[in-house]
Amino acid sequence: MRLFTIVTIILTLFIISGCSNTTNEIVVYTSVDQVFSEPVLKEFENKTGIKVKAVYDTEETKSTGVLNRLIAEKENPQCDLFWSGDPIRTIVLKNRGITQPYQSPEATDINPAFKDPQHNWTGFSARARVLIYNKNLLKPNEIPKSIFNLTDEKYKGKVAIANPLFGTTTFHIAALFTTLGNEKTKQFLTALKVNKVVIATSNGDVKKQVMQGRVACGLTDTDDAFEAAKENKNTGFLFLDQNGIGSLIMPNTVCLIKGSPNTNNGKKLMDFLLSKDTEAMLARSCAQMPLHKGVKVPAGVASLDSIIPMKVNYDKTAIKLEEIQNYLKAWAEQ
């Protein structure tokens, strides 16, 4: 009887735990690595007194939880704001009618190229695709300068990329398709396969493999590369194709979720995320490049002005991404 009572009390507590009536809160889903996103959200909480309830996931872990959760919750959204590490996932949501337009005053001076024309999403704090390399395995004159160098015989079996079906790698390849065209990109990818490119499980795995010297170099994002360089003096990174097609710039993006419970607080958080202060924080913590002008960045963090960016239309890239998925799957499984 006692056990029954205890169990009943516990179950009641569980149900009560779901009935919180706090109104001054905001629910955020983010695919940005928790180590970087959490401090920013805590800062917002401290400044505004609005309780932030976050659901974390990462594009490294394929955003299984967050994006599918947002899609599944469409009819009764729980999330107020989605903070993504790239524009693609936000565009997926926009195309499914899950986002709500909002034009933040903080985003006025952000380049329109990094904003949705209908204001469904706004970009900030960008990463870029870079080449990470092991200094012990590649002399300075051996380091590839272009993505197309990776198909050279001398790099056979020494280059790693993350699974092209997920994360920023998909984005990168989709961007190549829209920039170079189908034929050229397919030729490049075939050549990569012939050159025995190593398919890692994630960008983090690429970083690890390069650091451990399992491969000489690999494609990853600036935050991974920055971390690697901090951890290991023998790791370096560079922006590819600075004399050619340029490096892919991937802004973080934020969007409001349509029909969410706390839209006003969502707007406040969006304003906060799009502010120069947040960009400065992210520059310090994970080398993300501010899209606002005049934001102070630490040494070692590149400025967007110093990089030749790849010219991409994010909406078109998102469409292309869905078109090439089957091809990429077959390519990865060869």
Partner: peptide, 23 residues
């Protein structure tokens, strides 16, 4: 990871999300 209430800290999720970009 699909259903945990926002703002709840749970061990396996924390490990999984941190490990993505942690030494």
């Amino acid at each position: 990871i699909m259903v945990y209430p926002p703002g709840t800290e749970i061990m396996p999720i924390k490990v999984y999300t941190i490990m993505a970009n942690a030494p």
